[in-house]
Simulated assay, not measured.
Amino acid sequence: MEGPPRTLIHLLLLLLCIASKCLGGASGLNSTQMVTLKVDASPKLARKIPDTFLGVFFEEMGHGGAGGIWAELVSNRGFEAGGPNTPSNIDPWLIVGDDSSVYVETDRSSCFSRNIVALRMEVLCNDCPAGGVGIYNPGFWGMNIEDGKTYHLVMYVKSPKTTCLTVSLTSSDGLQNLASVTIIVAGDSKWIKVEKKLVAKGTNRTSRLQITSKKKGTVWLDQVSLMPADTYKGHGFRKGLVSMLMDLKPRFLRFPGGCFVEGGWLRNAFRWRQSIGPWEERPGHFGDCWQYWTDDGLGYYEFLLLSEDIGAAPIWVFNNGISYNDEVNTATIAPFVKDILDSLEFARGSANSTWGSVRAKMGHP
C-alpha cells in the first residue's frame, strides 16, 4: 500500500500554514516567519487498511427492508397493522365494490396464536358484478409485476359454506388482468393453507393483488403473501438489490438498524425472538421511530442468511434496555442480557443447543 496521496499532504501543509499565521498574528510574531514541515510518506511507514474496514449498515427505515430488499409484495399481509386488538388497521387493503356489496372487518379468529387477527369478508350481493367483489392490496406503492415471471401465492382461508374465490394480479384500476387463479373453499369452517402459482401475462409497474367472489356468503382470510419465485438463492431477497450490495464488496453487514432496534418506546423495539420461526406465526410490530408496521418476515434469521450470502460478517445490533423515551432500571437488566446471549446461541450454537436447534429447524444446521 502506498503512502498518503499528495493532495492530502498539500491540504495538511495549507492548514498548518494558516494556523501558524493566525497564531503568529495573535502572539505578535512576524507574519513572514517561515515554518518547515517534513513529512515522511515512504511505503515503509504505511499502514494497511484492515480487510474488515468497509461494510454496510442496514436500517429498517423508509421501507428499506419491507417493500425494499425483502421481496414480499403484500403490505400488511396479516391485516394487523393495528396490533392484536380489534378493530385492527388493515391499511393499505381496500374493497373491490362498494359498501352495499361487500363488508369487511377484523376479528380475533386466526389460527395463529401469536398474531390472532384475521379479516372477515362478507359478500352481500345476490347478483354481483361480473368481476366479483372483495378486497385488494396495492403493495408498497404498487406491485412491479413482470411479463412471464412466476409469483408464489400463499394465503389462509376458511368459510362456513362452500364458496369460490378468484385471486388476481391486475392493474391499479383493476381493468387489466395479468394473472388469476380460482380457489374453491370447502364449507367446513376450518382454516386451510392455499398455495398457488401466478404467471404474469403482461407487465405493469403499479399492479395490485385482489381477492374477489361472486357468491353471497362469508369468508375469513389471513396471512396473504405474494413473493416472486426468483428471489436470491431462494432466500426471499430481491436479486437486483442483492447484486448491488455485492458490488460494494462489504466485509460486514450491520443490522437491523439503530433507531429501529431502540424504538421510540421499548414496547415497540425490535424483538429478535418474535422475528424467527415460520413467517405466518411472526406477530410483527409497529416501528414507532419510522412510523410504519413491519410483519418481520425479514427477521433475525434472514439477516444472518443475507450476511452469509454476500460474504459479509454479521454485526448484530441488539437492544440494551434503552429506547428514546424510556429505559429499564439496571437492577432489572438481566432479561436483556439473557436475550443477547440467546441470540448469539441462535446464530452460533450447535444444532443440539436450545436456540441452535431452532435455527437448524429453520433450515440452517
Rank of each mutant, 00 (worst) to 15 (best):
G82Y: 06
M121G: 00
G148T: 05
D127V: 10
S168I: 05
S113C: 03
A186N: 14
E60V: 06
E80H: 14
P50E: 04
G97Q: 03
S110T: 05
D107H: 09
G55T: 10
M121F: 01
V167R: 05
S113Y: 07
T170R: 12
P84A: 14
R114K: 15
I145G: 04
D51P: 04
D99W: 04
L94R: 07
V167A: 12
K158Y: 04
E72M: 12
T150Y: 01
L54V: 13
V56K: 00
R47P: 09
D147C: 13
F112R: 07
P50N: 10
N144E: 13
G131N: 15
G62F: 05
S180H: 05
V123K: 05
G134S: 12
G97F: 09
S159V: 12
R120W: 01
S75F: 08
G78E: 02
W70P: 09
W70C: 07
D127K: 10
K161C: 11
R47Y: 08
S172C: 13
N85T: 13
V56S: 09
D173L: 11
E122R: 14
G187P: 12
S88R: 03
G68S: 09
V74S: 04
T182H: 05
S180M: 09
K48W: 04
V96L: 05
N177W: 00
K48Y: 05
T52Q: 10
L54A: 10
V123S: 11
D51C: 07
T86G: 02
G139Y: 08
N115D: 10
K149W: 02
L175D: 07
C128F: 05
V133N: 06
I184D: 11
I184A: 06
A41W: 02
S172W: 07
T106A: 04
H152S: 14
T106K: 01
N85S: 15
W70H: 14
F58A: 13
T52Y: 13
A46K: 04
D91L: 07
G64I: 03
I184F: 06
C164N: 07
G62A: 12
E60Y: 00
D91T: 14
G65E: 02
A118E: 02
E72T: 06
G55S: 08
D91R: 05
L45T: 04
A130H: 03
G65N: 02
L94T: 08
G134V: 11
D107I: 02
I95C: 01
Y151D: 05
S42E: 08
R120C: 15
V104N: 00
T162E: 15
W141D: 15
G64Y: 07
S100Y: 07
T170S: 13
L178R: 03
L94I: 02
S113N: 10
V102C: 03
A179H: 02
G187N: 13
W93D: 02
V154A: 10
L119N: 01
C111D: 04
I145C: 11
A46N: 14
T106G: 09
P50D: 09
Y156P: 00
S171L: 13
E146A: 08
L124N: 00
N177Y: 00
P138K: 12
R47F: 11
V181R: 03
F79S: 07
D98G: 08
